[in-house]
Nucleic acid binder design. Structure first.
Length: 886
DNA sequence: TACTCGGTCACT
DNA sequence: CAGTGACCG
């Protein structure tokens, strides 16, 4: 036992868990003050039995209303209850207002120490440092205690205000002093929340997360509870096992059932070996420790969610039974998800990398428990892309079914990243500063960095797509009819290998990279729009600060002609009955070669269209706006070097609605040239101000981003469940701008990103045949088929693009100061830049500068680097809060 | 025929 | 790593 006791003050933490009191209700009461003091509950829209309660106010709780009730039940218990319905959007509940309120609270609670957002209405704080500082100033007089602090409860001390206050001011034990000081800080924070956000919350204060969480729930609402170490044994003796975090479910049940345990104290008496035998080494040890009130789980420094998801259930006979309905709802979910992603990008500079679609379904109406499956793919921003990709994923799931009943669907965007993974891009260009020696370039080219390697382009592959119109069938929710809407998606690819040079060449270039620059009206405009430059030295790039709200532009490729394959797509979508069939009745679906041929056919490579949509684009709002030929698009980008010219707006003739938008010069002007460049779309602000260096905005489409290492691991990848549909919706570059993802690292990877997930198209064989065949056998057959198809595309695409590139006039490149992307040139000494200058920079640039600084320090003082990282992290979230708390 | 709609984490 | 499942509220 002794070894588990705190022996060193340095290990002792002061942790708080803060939990908003019936948060959704408070949010609604703040919105509508008439509800204050009245029995209130928030119900989620759901006509069945009055909707489900997701929050119940304390007045209503006093009247017996419980969270598990439906709205109707609540009314029975409390006839005068105010039932507030959660806002809805896109046909589903929309929790945005609660998320925003939660962020508001977090911005207040994160002031005094490391803060971890645990959920929409809960945070953990590590107040160790703040408490230590505060310990010197703990009032010795009870009258000096803050009013909120006087309401503290101290476990093991008579729950009497004055006693608690006495306790707070009279500690002699270090651990208790620490908690007492933390409790005062927490009281102040809670008071700040009450005053500034007008929300009440409850808190627990203890030495770790588990105890703090336990404590926050002990006295609600608007109170706080402190759990001194000494109180643990007494507390646990009576505490039901299930109250411990993580033991509320099956694990807790199994402990109860198999070991006959009831309380946490019971658990404490189970030998470690027994626990480990039953639940494994890790879980066993974890149980052993938590039963003693010990918990090492750190308070993470994270105030933003790690993923965004939205989902909807279709219970009972609401289950979706055909693809049009599925697609409709996928789109509704995509609308919300896209909005949230854009908001996150604008506010926090973060971009998701992965799209996950989850489906719960059964295959017979009678089947009891639904089957849950999730599939994922790289995410491309934009409602249409999300819709198309997610629908592909979902359809992949359902394609094996003769019939399906989807009872729930969800989309989520994960792998949110705020900063480039590697510092390659900035270190690369920092090295270029004339007369300045960059530490980052010493220590050799970060050869381990794929990002850097990629930038040097062993094989530069540029790609653009031509899509086709795919018939999209969207069920009209109200009328129950279906309507066709055009959707650009898919699109066939075209490739050029514009640069070769293997390992040797790359290595030399890493050391002495030259970045060519070309003047272009876009560049000029961005530069002009960006306003005066700060004073000078180094170069970074970012782009205009100009607001681009309003119309968004997407560079999408498309043909006006529907290929047979695309028609087939439409058919598949509109005729769900086909799901699960082999497509034998449709030649277009019979083999992948066939599909490939069609898609690669003449008509598939005709145009690049510039599509615009409003920020709140809804079904049917998109319109095809501009058509450019591929040649026009490629236009002035000539040269065979991968890092050649920028797109030339002269060659881009955008016409149509977009031109006459009500937007001011920003949108209009950039739109003019944007159709063919990587003009940021819905993420305009951020794209312009942020990741330009990585993503190569505003020209230089051949630049590093699109260079791809030709690591050919095709065989393997080709078997991973994707099929080539030959349709790229947009250029790799444009897509990266939207995605903020690194270029695919292999040719195969590139295709996979472009590919639509495997659909119901399988082989000529019938379902019966397949049922008889072994899975392995079938898969390998498919793999071969797919591989042949891909090879055909490679050859074709390369040839075509090479032709185009050779036709294009070569660019007049200036070799100027290293610049990647276009837009503002920020000039400063990155090694000595002061905080206020740094603060002015776009978030992404800030992040890269910090990363570069860290990298440098890492070499010089590895230990200090860790500290710096922490400090920087705290710094990096500041803008978010500054914005939020305004 | 119904605990929604979010989230996080660990395992494999 | 993609996918599943446990757990939380």
């Amino acid at each position: 036992m002794a070894r588990y006791q705190f022996s060193d003050h340095a290990e002792l933490r002061a942790v708080s868990h803060i939990d908003m009191d019936c948060f959704y209700v408070q949010v609604e009461q703040r919105r509508n003050p008439e509800l204050k003091g009245k029995p209130t509950a928030v119900v989620q829209y759901n006509p069945w039995k009055g909707g489900g309660l997701i929050a119940v106010g304390y007045e209503a709780r006093a009247r017996g209303v419980k969270k598990q009730m439906r709205g109707d039940d609540a009314r029975e218990h409390c006839p005068d209850i105010n039932l507030v319905t959660v806002p809805t959007a896109h046909g589903k509940a929309d929790l945005t207002i609660y998320r925003e309120a939660g962020a508001e609270v977090v911005s207040i609670l994160s002031r005094k120490g490391r803060c971890e957002r645990a959920s929409i209405d809960e945070v953990y704080l590590d107040l160790t440092e703040a408490a230590k500082e505060r310990m010197a100033h703990v009032p010795t007089n009870r009258d000096d205690l803050h009013a909120e602090a006087q309401k503290s409860h101290v476990l093991g001390v008579t729950p009497n205000v004055s006693d608690a206050s006495s306790w707070l001011v009279s500690r002699t034990e270090y651990s208790e002093q620490l908690l007492a000081a933390a409790a005062l800080i927490v009281a102040e924070l809670r008071e700040a929340v009450r005053m500034e956000a007008r929300f009440s919350c409850s808190a627990g204060v203890a030495h770790n997360k588990m105890l703090a969480k336990l404590a926050s729930n002990m006295h609600k609402p608007a109170q706080q509870t402190l759990v001194p170490l000494a109180a643990v044994p007494g507390l646990f003796e009576e505490l039901p096992l299930k109250k411990l975090r993580q033991l509320g479910g099956k694990l807790g049940a199994s402990l109860e059932n198999q070991l006959g345990l009831n309380t946490a104290g019971d658990l404490m008496r189970v030998p470690l070996e027994r626990l480990q035998d039953m639940h494994g080494k890790n879980v066993g040890m974890w149980l052993f420790r938590i039963s003693r009130g010990l918990d090492d789980d750190p308070v993470n420094d994270r105030v933003l969610p790690k993923s965004h998801g939205c989902s909807k259930t279709f219970p009972g006979r609401n289950a979706l039974a055909d693809l049009p309905a599925v697609r409709h709802w996928v789109r509704q979910l995509a609308l919300e998800l896209d909005q949230r992603l854009e908001t996150d990008a604008e506010q926090n500079g973060r971009f998701a990398r992965l799209l996950v679609a989850s489906v719960s379904y059964h295959t017979e109406p009678t089947l009891a428990s639904p089957h849950g499956v999730s599939k994922s793919c790289p995410i491309a921003y934009g409602v249409d892309r999300i819709t198309a990709d997610a629908f592909g994923l979902v359809r992949r799931v359902l394609s094996d079914c003769q019939a399906f009943y989807v009872t729930s669907m969800g989309l989520s965007a994960t792998n949110l990243q705020a900063t480039p993974e590697k510092t390659a891009s900035i270190t690369t260009f920092l090295r270029k500063v004339p007369g300045k020696q960059s530490a980052a370039s010493d220590g050799g080219a970060p050869t381990g960095s794929e990002t850097t390697d990629r930038g040097e382009g062993e094989t530069a592959l540029d790609e653009e797509g031509n899509g086709g119109l795919r018939g999209q069938v969207a069920a009209d929710e109200k009328e129950g009819t279906a309507q066709i809407e055009g959707e650009r998606g898919g699109g066939s690819g075209e490739y050029a290998e514009t640069s070769t040079g293997g390992e040797a060449r790359r290595k030399t270039e890493v050391g002495a990279r030259k970045v060519k620059r070309q003047r272009s009206p876009l560049r000029d405009w961005l530069a002009a729009a960006s306003g005066p430059r700060p004073a000078s030295k180094v170069i970074s790039t970012g782009g205009s600060e100009g607001k681009g709200k309003g119309l968004e532009r997407e560079v999408l490729a498309g043909t006006a002609t529907q290929s047979d394959a695309l028609k087939a797509e439409g058919r598949a979508a509109s005729e769900p009955a086909e799901c699960g069939r082999t497509g034998a009745d449709d030649p277009a679906l019979q083999s992948e070669e066939l599909r490939g041929d069609e898609i690669d056919g003449q008509h598939a490579l005709e145009g690049v269209s510039c599509v615009e949509r409003g920020p709140d684009s809804t079904v049917g709002e998109e319109c095809e706006d501009v058509q450019l030929t591929l040649e026009e698009w490629i236009g002035d980008r000539g040269g065979t070097d991968s890092r050649s010219a920028a797109a030339d707006p002269e060659h881009a003739s955008c016409e149509g609605r977009g031109r006459t938008s009500e937007n001011e010069k920003g949108a209009a002007s950039s739109a003019e040239v944007a159709g063919v460049t990587a003009e940021p779309t819905g993420l305009s602000d951020l794209a312009k101000s942020g990741h330009a260096d990585r993503l190569d905005l505003g020209g230089e489409l051949g630049e590093g981003n699109v260079a791809i290492e030709d690591r050919n691991n095709g065989e393997e990848k080709a078997d991973s469940g994707f099929e080539w549909k030959g349709a790229l919706a947009e250029t790799a570059t444009a897509r990266q701008v939207r995605n903020r993802v690194e270029a695919p690292k292999s040719l195969e990877a590139l295709w996979q990103k472009a590919a639509v997930p495997k659909t119901d198209v399988q082989s000529e064989r019938t379902v019966e045949d397949q049922a008889g065949a072994s899975r392995e056998g079938r898969r390998s057959t498919q793999s071969k088929t797919r591989k042949r198809s891909l090879d055909g595309h490679v050859a074709d695409a390369k040839e075509k693009l090479q032709k185009l590139w050779s036709k294009a006039p070569s660019a007049k490149d200036e070799t100027g100061p290293a610049e990647v992307g276009s837009g503002i040139t920020y000039e400063f000494d990155w090694q000595e830049v002061d905080q206020s200058t740094l603060d002015e920079l776009p978030l992404a640039i800030q992040a890269e500068i910090r990363a570069a600084q860290r990298l440098q320090m890492q070499r010089q003082q590895p230990k200090a680097a860790k500290k710096l990282e922490k400090a920087q992290h705290a710094q990096s979230i500041k803008p978010f809060f500054q914005r939020k708390s305004r």
